[in-house]
């Protein structure tokens, strides 16, 4: 460091001011003249910093608290996982609406097995209706139509209905977890759990 050349300009020496400086009494609210501290922390500054810290601390913690208040720890909503009876209870080719009201899930029995469709329209979230005579799901809100496979073919729905996890529980009943979703447009319908093979 010391070896490096410096670009310091040598200031001209100021002539001494004739009058002697007025001697000041050290005041309590003022840092001593020779105080090297960056903040020159005296009582007034300490109270200023502390006061604003307390103020913003209060504002921030109460905002975070108010936000957290909006997310309760327990929800009184139906469990997403439920048992849906024995596989033999279902008729081939039929769409079961048994769990639609309570769980918003259709269970479809095809020749090879089962799949579960979540009965929430992919347009804006209404509950479509299964129309057996037309062999399609039809949404009453804006007219979206879906095949039995859940593929959309008419109306404003932009994508097929979502399928839910379907499997077998230990006691042989069908088990469905509607929190696990399989989306057609992501190529997930072939995945494990999107389809339950029927083993008579």
């Amino acid at each position: 460091m010391a070896d490096q050349p410096t670009n310091e300009v040598v200031k001209p020496v100021q002539p001494q001011i004739a009058a002697a400086p007025i001697p000041r009494k050290p005041k309590q609210d003022r840092a001593p003249e020779e105080d090297p501290g960056i903040w020159r922390m005296n009582r007034r500054n300490a109270l200023w910093v502390g006061g604003w810290l307390a103020f913003f601390g209060f504002i921030i913690t109460s905002t975070v608290g108010a936000l957290r208040y909006m997310f309760p720890r327990v929800l009184f909503e139906p469990p997403t996982k439920f048992k849906a009876g024995l596989p033999a209870d279902y008729v081939v080719g039929e769409v079961s609406e048994k769990y639609k009201d309570e769980k918003r899930v259709w269970i479809v029995r095809e020749k090879d097995g089962f799949y579960a469709i979540i009965s929430i329209c992919t347009h804006l979230g209404c509950t479509p209706r299964w129309l057996p005579s037309d062999n399609k799901f039809k949404c009453p809100c804006h007219g979206s139509g879906f095949y039995k496979s859940a593929i959309n073919f008419e109306g404003p729905a932009p994508r097929p209905l979502e399928r839910a996890f379907i499997g077998l529980a230990d006691d042989g009943q069908i088990e469905i977890d509607r929190s696990v979703k399989f989306l057609y447009e992501k190529g997930e319908w072939g995945k494990q759990g999107s389809f339950l093979e029927y083993k008579g």
């Binding site: 909006m70 997310f71 929800l75």
Partner: peptide, 16 residues
Amino acid sequence: DNDVRFVLLGGTEVGP
């Protein structure tokens, strides 16, 4: 169950 929609609804779907 933890996004902005939950703040509005107080649940994952419209309910009590």
